[in-house]
Nucleic acid binder design. Structure first.
Lengths: 160, 160
DNA sequence: ATTAATGCAAACGGTTTGCACTACT
DNA sequence: AGTAGTGCAAACCGTTTGCATTAAT
């Protein structure tokens, strides 16, 4: 997952050009968000991104961040899914296509890799002609550690 | 498997007793919600349940509905997951254990049956000791009809 | 000069909470 | 009588929107 990017050495370097190619603009605020995204591994909530942007630039305004996320999603640079609590979870596209596992006991999360989901994807494609968006896949359950202990109820998901 | 049902013919008939057994109470408001749930197939959002209760009893108060849903979830009578837009999706337990497929193009939803997810469940169990909660599974992608047409972006999920 | 993007503030929508009151047991 | 549950209203939190202003092109 590290070699031979299509055009630029760092995919992030393309972004300003891609924006301008659409008549959109490259602003300091977008620069901040892109810097945050570039430093992000895995998934982040919208609110988290706002917070991290604010750390870089205290003048960050939420609406600007969300509006830019919309644009970036149209450009195919980020995608969003939903976490256990229903909040928006963004993740950066360049990463391999994968979904997420959520433990409703400890709230931990891990990636579901394409090969693990392959059978499900294949079955749904054959039986229903359904094309799974792996990046949006959320599998909830109990991790090995939590599976042993008591039944987690709704409250477990609210803790934290 | 036909004779002597554990306690009641209709599982809903047990509810008042199960509540009282815990020192909880059977109220008209809970009666309304249970009636709505009993008439519900598939999944419903919390807001939808509030609305349907209000149809039966215009005096319905949202907080009462949500509080009762919490109780019912503790009793194992409903479970919740999250839909495409992140809202709470409740569904009634007695139904077979299944997840949901969401088409991000047309916003349609279908069930993912246990056998379709079996391979995924097995892989995650073997490789990670993870116990999948099928009722919480959300698979997003494009249905057969939508897969042919143009790329759906974030906006497709906002439409409607 | 255009017009996309920003800042701000207010709205939104679903959900939650505090508290005094009601009513189930 | 005792206490779970209700109604109400206000708070909450993440996200969205309208609009006048700013700034990238």
């Amino acid at each position: 997952m590290r070699e031979t990017p299509p055009t630029a050495a760092d995919p992030w370097d393309e972004v300003p050009g891609r924006l301008r190619a659409r008549g959109l603009r490259w602003t300091p605020q977008r620069r901040t968000l892109l810097a945050v995204l570039a430093a992000t591994r895995g998934h982040v909530t919208g609110a988290e991104l706002v917070e991290r942007c604010r750390a870089m630039d205290p003048a960050t305004i939420p609406s600007t961040v969300y509006r830019t996320l919309d644009v970036l999603e149209e450009l195919g640079i980020v995608r969003h899914a939903h976490g256990l609590d229903g909040r928006e979870e963004f993740h950066v596209l360049p990463a391999a296509d994968h979904g997420h596992i959520w433990c409703s006991g400890c709230l931990g999360t891990w990636d579901v890799h394409a090969d693990e989901a392959a059978a499900l994807v294949a079955v749904l494609a054959q039986r229903r002609g359904f094309r799974v968006d792996l990046s949006h896949l959320s599998v909830v359950g109990l991790c090995e550690g939590c599976a042993g202990e008591g039944q987690p109820g709704r409250e477990a998901q609210r803790a934290g």
